[in-house]
Amino acid sequence: MDMIFYVDDDTLIVSLSGEIDHHIVPKLRSDIDDEIGLCGTRDLIFDFAGVEFMDSSGIGMVLGRYKKVHATGGRVTIRNAGRLVKQILDMSGVFTLMEYEDTEPET
């Protein structure tokens, strides 16, 4: 599991790759929260382009960050999720709260 952060104006972009499960999620959660605190950005983008596997632990991670960002008036966007990752997020209604976008051509 790797995570790269980019800052674009008032947006923090979290680029995730590898496998996301309950083992790794607590670390991702605290790293993202630390980074938000450090950068002071308002909006957040999760980029799933490099994610090979994700189970329902990813839902909690995304929703938890949404609550934080939303509380301070920010928006959360999901980007480049594969079909199954999208399906898992969709099961809990994540996309009623957040926007989805594709920025990479599907391979």
């Binding site: 329902s56 929703l63 809990s92």
Partner: peptide, 22 residues
Amino acid sequence: EPLFSGLPEEEMSGMGFTVMES
């Protein structure tokens, strides 16, 4: 049941069984 979590304070989605069933 969807969204049921035994540990509600821990940011669990409660979607594990729903994912299995899907």
